[in-house]
Write a protein that binds this DNA or RNA. Sequence first.
DNA 1: TGAAAATGAATGATCGTTCATTTATTTTAC
DNA 2: GTAAAATAAATGAACGATCATTCATTTTCA
Lengths: 210, 210
Amino acid sequence: MEAARQQTPKGSQTAARVRAAALKLFARHGYAAVSIRQIAQEVGVQPGALYNHFPTKQDILKDLMLAHMDDLISSWDAERARIPAKTDPLDAFVRFHIRYHMEKRDEVFVSYMELRNLEPENYQLVGAERRRYEAILTEILDQGAASDQYMVEDAKVATRAVIAMLTGIPSWYQPGGPLGPREIEDLYAALVQRSVGNTTSTKTIGERVS
Amino acid sequence: MEAARQQTPKGSQTAARVRAAALKLFARHGYAAVSIRQIAQEVGVQPGALYNHFPTKQDILKDLMLAHMDDLISSWDAERARIPAKTDPLDAFVRFHIRYHMEKRDEVFVSYMELRNLEPENYQLVGAERRRYEAILTEILDQGAASDQYMVEDAKVATRAVIAMLTGIPSWYQPGGPLGPREIEDLYAALVQRSVGNTTSTKTIGERVS
DNA sequence: TGAAAATGAATGATCGTTCATTTATTTTAC
DNA sequence: GTAAAATAAATGAACGATCATTCATTTTCA
């Protein structure tokens, strides 16, 4: 099974390669601007062959978006199980979110740019997952507010504000730039902690040096 | 000008109606998913007629986006001329940005969703305007940091963070919701002020009541 | 009267999808 | 283990629909 892998593994894997090609093209040009023919060409196959793996173009988009949301949420579940008990949960969440969104640029980009190209039924499905993810942060903020650690007037509004702020990072970050991923993580983590007025922040940042 | 308005003002105004129709449709379905025929139908005219006013479909998009950026920047110029001298400039900017973006939903939405559908030349033009606008906030933050009013490690990063946070509002706000525009404005203004650690914030928000 | 605007029809290209057929691969039977 | 049967995947061509754009002609309006 492992020794003999032909130069062109005709057998299967095609569905996976379609997903990869579609993801790349959707991220670059947008769902509506990408044709089935372009995807097929990127895969190296005839257009009709795609229909052995996906019933419609819309299903490719749905698959990509649902897979991303599932992966995002289960990645957080795995991360949360790993973090020490005394860690500030907001800090952990923010850093996780940034790291994840910088790693999975294309998935993230497609998942929040192509919402309007989802048919109503699929829109519902993705929307539900999205709300599940946002609820994670809202709960963190609510608990922090309840224990007087954070100063949050409206946890739902703060959730959207923080997520919008963080999710915007990949739109301007580029690997060659002056700031590395870790520096960006630190800068945003500090911004968020201050925005919710964390009174027990471990790191005091930027003691003003005149 | 106000008394005689025919049922179908065939005369002119067509270019303006094309812009309005295209804006509405682009915002709803995306540039690539909207056809010239749909725009023409919305205007109530044959497809060919649009070409008396715009050379290509791309030019309609370019017009909309450049007009929006110009209007945004000149609206801020007008606003700035109006605000009292002792007003905190960051607070003024944030409130202006929120108000403007909630009013001009469609223009804003199109202008940051359709960037990738601009041909390179037009992308450059819009990108330049965008940087001009961001520079306004960066300068405010720089000056605040220089006078020790704000705590900002990196003004450019903070600019992007704040703008992403604010620009996300229209994507979840809907007029019938539990929060009015003014309340949202206040909540976000507070979030931003705390995020840059404003030490001289006029309003202290949400004294925790147990 | 003359210029601008709109029509209606047409252009060639490309769209998502289908389908009969061929080619690979896997399963079954001996 | 090998031949036959069943299944899966890919091809290549075609479907009707729709795309952005053009243009000769007619209508509208100053």
